[in-house]
Design a protein around this nucleic acid. Structure first.
Length: 623
RNA sequence: GGGGGCGUGGUGAAGCCUGGAGUUCACGCCGGCCUGUCAAGCCGGAGGUCGCGGGUUCAAAUCCCGUCGUCCCCGCCA
């Protein structure tokens, strides 16, 4: 584009009002042969206003309806669908059209006869009466129907992803993704953020997730890692005086797949100098608001509510609560201080808790209740107590006979039990009770769809989590600033960090923190993590060195773009908003990757495959 | 690493529990009819290693074991 063309271009100027031109696009017609454009409009452009115009469309044959004397088909292009009517006597080539043929058709737009409009189609009032047809490209019969209503096996969809992407739903998701990215860039650009790229071949820092490694040819035996996030580089940009940074960054974590996890995924990465939590929140809220506005046409009303980590665990049993519904968990321990019910008394003596929530009127059968109890045990509880509130302030439950009147009344009152409500109680350690009740709460109350958008900041995360064996690991990452240095030194297990998550409908959308900008503090954190000065020098020395040169206080955030989009698009898996995702086993069925490589390539890298892992080895260890 | 669901003409399903002839439904494909259809309709036709391997049985899509693929979940994901 941009080169000057003859005056004929002017005859297509009405394209500027077309489907893809709303944002001021300069996309014009493309020359076919000579001066013939492939198209003069998009399908979605046609309306009553186009009646009488002679239009050329290009796209795919979506559905063919052969009436003998007259043919109808839906022509689908990137904008949508419009019906084409064609007389095979006039255009014999129409007889040979098949599904997914790529064609160009031309003719007058006309109003459909009375009663023949299709209200289900945006362009259903009109049709293109084609008198010219060009087959640009034929198609073999497709392996699955290109239609949102047809379910196709996921593996097959990925093998023929290019066909899958023709489905309106997938096209819509791709488009949403582009709009979201534009809204992010727009919002941040206006606020003075600089879009900066960081390297994707970086030093491995074996912390957190497993690194994806890339062998070096120039330095055989050495490896780059693909970034798990641009974390350290964006902090170095702060040292470098960038002040406000963002990047829509590809990140890589070599962990097992889930419906919301892929080996490679996209984050909106943000960092700012002389910045703190509230600044981060305000900016993220603006970004999220812009994206939601663009994709949903819904105006959010920031600020988003905030909940502390401790409160989230207590009331919802998770650090990413779905607050679209109630069923909040209550701690009932105090009501049982003098209980004669041995199971409860023993739990409290051991420092445990008794918590429960009101699941509402569930009308569950005995076997369904048993299923809940089984689920509770799978989640680690010793047991699950279920009770149904009855008229007259009593409980229908196998446990009822062990409870005093006071205790029964307390349960009903604290859980606001109305007659018929199912009340679920767990007596266990605080962690187990939270985990079990939190899961059951989701199972019983969580809405399936994502129509409502319930954003929530979870704040005041702990600095460290206890890991198996009693050691400590960073709750967020080791560059997160503690709220209070003394507290962190003296009570690291309970110390609070300046770390926060953004949660949407029970999904963790992203997390961030105020960072450590003092090299001494950074070293202290490494000490608590059990990383010696020598070791931290070896692994992170290059980074700590940078902190010694007048590092500004800084803070930031990373937003999971794939998860955000999946929720906004009402998809249950991020695969639906990723153009070319991988299967759960890390395979791309279309290209067949990953594959073995030529031994010459390995030799150049100084790599020799161990017996048992060679793809050509019949006794290979894994699949 | 562990648990679970699914795998049946090109596609999606039913059949499997309770073994008895590759049986059924819808879509697609091929041929025919049809001038207002719109997931068109009607008639006819082709199309199968029931994922793969082993076992049980007179007999396996069906039962058992293993394996591969795929999806969901636990672990893991600073």
């Amino acid at each position: 584009m941009g080169r000057r063309q003859g005056g004929r271009q002017g005859s297509h100027q009405r394209r500027s009002r077309g489907y893809f031109s709303r944002g001021g696009s300069s996309m014009g017609p493309t020359a076919l042969e000579g001066d013939q454009p492939y198209r003069t409009a998009y399908a979605a452009d046609l309306s009553e206003a186009s009646v009488g115009e002679r239009i050329r469309l290009a796209g795919w044959v979506a559905r063919r309806r052969d009436q003998g004397g007259v043919y109808f088909f839906d022509l689908r292009d990137a904008s949508g669908v419009v019906q084409v009517v064609i007389d095979p006597a006039e255009v014999p080539a129409a007889r040979d059209l098949r599904a997914e043929y790529c064609i160009s058709v031309e003719g007058p737009v006309r109003l459909r006869p009375a009663g023949m409009a299709n209200p289900d189609l945006a362009t259903g009032a009109v049709e293109l009466a084609a008198d010219q047809l060009g087959v640009l490209s034929r198609s073999e019969p497709v392996p699955f129907i290109i239609d949102d209503r047809a379910e196709a096996d996921e593996r097959l969809r990925l093998e023929y992803r290019y066909l899958d992407l023709r489905r309106p739903r997938m096209a819509k998701n791709l488009r949403a993704r582009s709009l979201a990215a534009a809204a992010m860039r727009d919002t941040l650009g206006r606020r003075g953020f600089l879009e900066v790229e960081t390297p994707t071949l970086i030093r491995s820092t074996p912390e957190g997730a497993r690194d994806m490694l890339v062998p070096s040819r120039l330095r055989r035996g050495d490896f780059y890692a693909l970034p798990q996030s641009p974390q350290l580089f964006k902090q170095l940009l702060m040292v470098g005086g960038v002040d406000r940074y963002y990047q829509i960054a590809r990140c890589y974590r070599d962990e097992d797949f889930r419906s919301d996890r892929q080996l490679e995924f996209t984050q909106l990465d943000i960092e700012g100098a002389f910045w703190g939590r509230d600044g981060v929140f305000e900016t993220l809220e603006a970004v999220v608001q812009a994206v939601v506005e663009r994709l949903r046409g819904v105006t959010l009303e920031p600020p988003f509510p905030r909940l502390t980590y401790a409160e989230a665990l207590l009331r919802y049993g998770t650090d990413k609560p779905d607050v679209r519904f109630g069923m909040e968990i209550s701690d009932l321990s105090d009501a049982f201080l003098k209980t004669k019910f041995r199971a409860f008394a023993a739990t409290l003596e051991d420092g445990g808790v008794i918590r429960g929530f009101n699941a509402g009127k569930q009308e569950m059968s005995r076997s369904q209740l048993d299923g809940l109890a089984t689920r509770a045990k799978e989640l680690g509880a010793k047991g699950l107590i279920s009770a149904v509130a009855e008229e007259g302030g009593t409980l229908r439950s196998q446990t009822a006979k062990h409870l005093s009147e006071f205790e029964t009344a307390a349960i009903i009152e604290d859980l606001k039990g109305q007659p018929g409500d199912l009340l679920l109680l767990v007596a266990d350690t605080a962690a187990v009770a939270a985990q079990v009740l939190g899961q059951l709460r989701l199972q019983l109350g969580r809405p399936d769809r994502h129509d409502d958008l319930s954003f929530l900041w979870v704040i005041d995360f702990p600095v460290f989590d206890e890991v198996e064996g009693g050691g400590l690991a960073p709750s967020h990452h080791p560059f997160t600033a503690p709220v209070d240095l003394v507290e962190m030194r003296e009570r690291p297990r309970t110390a609070i960090a300046k770390a926060y998550d953004l949660v949407l409908n029970g999904s963790e959308l992203g997390s961030g923190s105020v960072r450590i900008h003092d090299p001494e503090v950074q070293q202290e954190v490494f000490d608590i993590l059990g990383i010696s000065a020598d070791e931290s020098e070896r692994r992170f020395g290059w980074f700590i060195k940078a902190l010694r040169y007048g590092t500004p206080p800084h803070a930031g955030f990373a937003l999971g773009v794939d998860r955000f989009l999946a929720i906004l698009q009402q998809e249950t898996s991020i695969r639906e908003v990723i153009p070319f995702p991988k299967t759960q086993t890390g395979i791309d069925p279309m290209t067949g990757s990953p594959t073995a490589v030529d031994p010459v390539q390995l030799a150049e890298l100084g790599i020799e495959l161990r017996a048992g892992v060679d793809a050509d080895d019949p006794d290979r260890e894994d699949g």
